[in-house]
């Protein structure tokens, strides 16, 4: 019984769409375009976020030590730092190691450095912080604290610019949110007006139906379904478009992009399955809401 009714209302909704194909196509198109913009933002943010997470993962503090510290002093320092609450790992790099890795990092440099009769590079500690202490603020604070330890010359946490990147990301997120909100309102406006149009083309029929004893629910349900279908079609279309763009554009240039972005194993990824589901449900919710407000003032026979 319930199933029969559902299919009945679904058929009515499809009738509505068939009777106003142009208007419905416009609504679906508008939803698709705004959701395309929206999900492009989503994809951008999710990728930047995972990039950031990757960087956070790799972040470490380098402590450059004063020259001429005794072995015992260095041991003591290492113990002391390791005992600090948020320090997970510490590795000592002596002057020779520092020089040889410096030589390795810049090919051709060894020729130049070979003749140095004393090693200018300081010994250092490489410190990794505990997972819970890896936010930029905490890294910054830890570096500051570590730099005041006696025998420590300087504390550097490699990617200081990542911090700036992180703030710009927060700003971009805000801007995205504002744009998203505007898009949302515009889309709801368009959807509600399309539904209103289908309502008007059926006004007489609805009034007659009402006089024959139809409830509000009976009359509204097809329009709600119409809105939901519009939302679903629009958001699905936007995802398909985004995926196509992702395959064609991003995969093609990804090798160069990747190389320039990070040295690591970062892969630009498409929206995750949960996000895709959210986008589709978001589309349906939006369509439903659009039809809801368009029917609000209607139906008072």
């Amino acid at each position: 019984m319930v199933f029969i009714k559902t299919s009945y209302f679904l058929n009515k909704a499809l009738d509505n769409i068939r009777q106003n194909p142009f208007v419905n196509l416009i609504a679906i198109g508008v939803i698709a375009i705004s959701f395309l913009i929206f999900s492009t933002f989503l994809m951008l943010f999710s990728n930047l976020n995972s990039l950031l997470a990757l960087w956070e993962e790799e972040i470490q503090i380098e402590l450059f030590l004063d020259d001429n510290l005794s072995g015992e002093k260095i041991d003591a320092l290492q113990k002391k730092i390791l005992s600090m609450a948020n320090v997970k790992e510490i590795r000592y790099i002596n002057k020779e190691e520092a020089l040889s890795s410096f030589k390795k990092s810049i090919p051709g440099m060894d020729v130049l450095v070979k003749d140095l009769n004393n090693n200018p590079l300081p010994a250092s500690f490489e410190i990794k912080l505990a997972e819970s202490s890896k936010s930029f603020d905490m890294v910054k604070a830890a570096a500051k604290k570590l730099s005041t330890i006696d025998g420590v010359n300087d504390a550097v946490y490699g990617q200081e610019w990542v911090e700036r990147f992180s703030t710009s990301l927060a700003i971009a997120r805000l801007v995205g949110l504002i744009i998203g909100a505007f898009l949302l309102m515009a889309t709801i406006f368009i959807v509600s007006n399309t539904i209103k149009l289908t309502v008007y083309t059926r006004k007489e029929e609805l009034e007659i139906t009402r006089l024959l004893g139809a409830t509000d629910r009976f009359i509204r349900l097809p329009f709600f379904i119409e809105g939901i279908l519009q939302g679903l079609a629009g958001s699905a279309l936007s995802l398909a478009g985004l995926y196509l763009a992702y395959r064609i554009f991003i995969i093609k240039v990804s090798s160069s992009v990747q190389a320039s972005l990070v040295t690591g194993t970062f892969q630009i990824s498409f929206l995750s399955t949960p996000t895709i589901t959210y986008v589709l449900f978001g589309g349906m919710a939006l369509g439903l809401f659009g039809s809801f407000i368009s029917l609000g003032r209607f139906l008072k026979v």
Partner: peptide, 19 residues
């Protein structure tokens, strides 16, 4: 609606759905 379901109406202008 439930009142109307119990009452058949033949309208002066028919009010049939022409489509």
């Amino acid at each position: 609606p439930y009142l109307r379901r119990n009452t058949g109406i033949v309208f002066q202008d028919f009010k049939l759905l022409n489509k």
